[in-house]
Design a protein around this nucleic acid. Structure first.
Length: 475
RNA sequence: GCCCCCAUCGUCUAGUGGCCUAGGACGCCGCCCUUUCAAGGCGGUAACGGGGAUUCGAACUCCCCUGGGGGCACCA
């Protein structure tokens, strides 16, 4: 009896994919995969003014980057306007919708007046019962015509939400709403209802911010003669750390920003899956297959969740350590190319990733820390604060002399270049002078493991840097 | 203003009447390890918003308050 579910992710291409939408896409994908269903992609671009082709492309790129492959689509609503308009005509003909000649400004003005008078905003039904003569006359005035859906005057709209249970609202709180703009373009509610019917969507999984619009879409379906309803599941919202709705002011919330910043899709998927859902066994670090296997709507939480960058960072570190070196290299390459351009040497980058993998939080951390490998000795510089550390280091001149002497004849291996013996021989604590050596070689007093870095850089360049530092020190 | 939803450590959460002197994870603090910084190991800090009710017994059920969030467009 239970057929394979059909779900859809239907973003509006009015911006890049952000955290909240990505989580919605993920939960739809997880539901489809867990139940062997179909995951459809639909682009809700009925707002021609705000929709942009670049976002249509960008959203798909980001979805693919996350690994959320869709089975059908993308269905572009902008290509289906005639379907929506036909539906609107049907409703018009049946008297379930009516022509409205109020202008946007007039509606807005009456809304403001209602608010000011302490009455609830919303369309006041001004054109609800116009006679044919009145309509003709208004049209003759050259007034633009929009089409409004006639909502019930009484009674209750009710549906059972898969995560929230019974949801009901009095129809008196839902005013007649526009389904076709005065410019002839259909609106979200109409397109949404028509397409969910046409695409045989069985489960609508989306953010809770859309819960009130469900009543309208449901009414539209029924008016179009479709009594079957999809299962609705409204997900708790994702909030910023200040508990307000997540937005640009909370820093990076666009998924592509996370990608560019060196976060791994595995980590984002994993972290996002835990925002509003949790497996019954308490696992946290899981790959996509494990999440798919454990996921279901009955374990979706009800309360809004705050997006925690610190935990994402931890999660990303976990994943950097889990993926293989070739995988890490594939992720780091684009970032490194951007950072170093022609100076980038892929083999050297791979070496840097190898020695940095165990410690990094973000891919970009390793790429940044490897900068000393891609800069000419002549252009190599030491960060000011790091040089200060060098100067403050006890007997640093002696140390550098000894290290240089040691390196000059050392076997060029990780063990061979290890300078701790000579530091010890000077009666100094390796821990104390190590930061200075990091600074001389890497330009920063904390970075990629020193011995391996020397090996990667090679004897000549390593010695050149230590000698340059020794000279700069003088004395 | 009106409608709706939500409410366990700072954060993400487990918990579905007794197993809870509330568990895990991130963060934070301390210790260990250590080639700097990390990572890793070990330990610690920290919560059921308040008030009623039901019950032999409430984090778990009901009501009120408070707090937080969402919605009320010719955006989606």
């Amino acid at each position: 009896m239970t057929e394979a579910p059909r779900v859809r992710f239907s973003p509006a291409p009015t911006g890049s994919l952000h955290v909240g939408s990505a989580r919605t896409a993920l939960f739809n994908w997880l539901y489809a995969r867990h139940h062997g269903g179909t995951f459809c992609l639909r682009i809700e671009d009925t707002d021609r003014a705000r929709s942009k082709e670049e976002w249509v492309v960008g959203i798909q790129d980001t979805l693919r980057w996350l690994g959320l492959e869709w089975d059908e689509g993308p269905v572009l609503q902008s290509a289906r306007f005639q379907e929506y308009l036909a539906a609107a005509d049907e409703l018009l003909g049946a008297g379930k919708a009516y022509a409205c000649y109020c202008t946007e400004d007039e509606v807005k003005a009456r809304n403001d007046a209602a608010m000011a008078a302490g009455r609830p905003p919303g369309y006041d039904g001004h054109c609800r019962d116009l006679s044919a003569e009145q309509r003709a006359s208004l049209a003759a005035e050259g007034r633009p015509r929009s089409i409004r859906f006639r909502t019930p005057d009484e009674g209750t709209s009710h549906f059972v939400d898969a995560v929230r249970g019974d949801v009901r609202v009095e129809w008196t709180h839902i005013p007649d709403f526009v389904i076709v703009r005065s410019d002839g373009n259909p609106i979200f509610f109409l397109a949404n209802a028509v397409d969910d019917i046409a695409m045989h969507i069985s489960h609508v999984i989306r953010g809770e911010d859309l819960i009130d619009s469900t009543h309208r879409v449901l009414a539209l379906r029924e008016a179009l003669g479709v009594s079957e309803r999809p299962v609705y599941a409204h997900l708790p919202l994702i909030l910023g750390t200040d508990r307000a709705k997540l937005s640009k002011r909370h820093g990076a919330v666009a998924l592509e920003d996370f990608r560019d910043a060196g976060y791994l899709p595995e980590a984002l998927v994993n972290y996002l899956s835990l925002l509003g859902w949790a497996p019954d066994d308490g696992r946290e670090v899981m790959d996509a297959d494990e999440i798919v296997a454990a996921f279901d709507l009955d374990r979706v939480t009800h309360a809004a969740a705050a997006f925690d960058h610190a935990k994402l960072d931890w999660m990303n570190g976990e994943w950097i350590r889990r993926i293989t070196l070739p995988e890490l290299e594939a992720r780091a390459l684009p970032i490194a190319r951007t950072a170093y351009g022609d100076a980038l040497d892929v083999d050297t980058l791979r070496d840097a990733l190898r020695i940095g993998q165990e410690r990094a939080v973000k891919v970009s951390d390793i790429v940044e820390q490897a900068d000393f490998l891609f800069v000419d000795d002549a252009a190599f510089t030491i960060a000011a604060e790091s040089w200060e550390r060098v100067e403050k280091t006890e007997r640093i001149g002696e140390v550098l002399d000894a290290v240089i002497a040691h390196l000059d004849g050392a076997e060029w291996t990780t063990e061979g270049v290890d300078p701790r013996g000579v530091i010890d021989g000077l009666g100094l604590k390796a821990r104390k002078v190590m930061p200075a050596l990091y600074a001389c070689l890497e330009g920063r007093h904390a970075g990629l493991p020193l011995f391996d870095s020397m090996v990667i850089l090679g004897r000549e360049r390593t010695l050149a840097r230590f000698r340059a530092a020794r000279e700069r020190l003088g004395g």
